[in-house]
Amino acid sequence: MRELLKSKARRIELVLALVLFLVEGFLYLTFRSTELNMFRFYEHAGPWVDSLREWGGELSLPQWVRYSLPDGLWLLSYLLLVDAIWNRFDKVSCVWYLSMPAVAFGSELAQLCWGFTGTYDMMDLVCYSTAVIITLIIVYSKNYIRKKIAANVQ
């Protein structure tokens, strides 16, 4: 565990992932329908959720920020944490990298094709894709830097 926290890049990824996860949670709690499964747990949390939702009701944010951005932040947060743990994409770590994108894209396609409860939204897919692209850029940049450093050492 201590080994994992040694690298500066990993620490940045960990902090960024936690911030994104908190922002995603905040957006869900504040703006989403109370029919979601999560509100079964939060109804026991006390009046602070109601206060938060009242405050959020006064804000005017674009639809995609309320309904699609949290999904993208959720996926990006997961991918950053997996990258912080494994530090490279290879045949051993690929299942962990690909598991939540499979859930994300799969649930969206299930809503479109098999009538899963929920609303299919193209913007959700755009946000998921953006999260995957950002992760690919980070993974390939780290690989490139690693190769440069290795070449300089030789």
């Binding site: 989403r32 499964n37 409860t117």
Partner: peptide, 16 residues
């Protein structure tokens, strides 16, 4: 552990 936490969080953020 991470995948489990995120899987559960995905389930709670969807209806039905």
């Amino acid at each position: 552990i991470l995948a489990t936490v995120f899987l559960v969080s995905a389930c709670t953020s969807i209806q039905g």
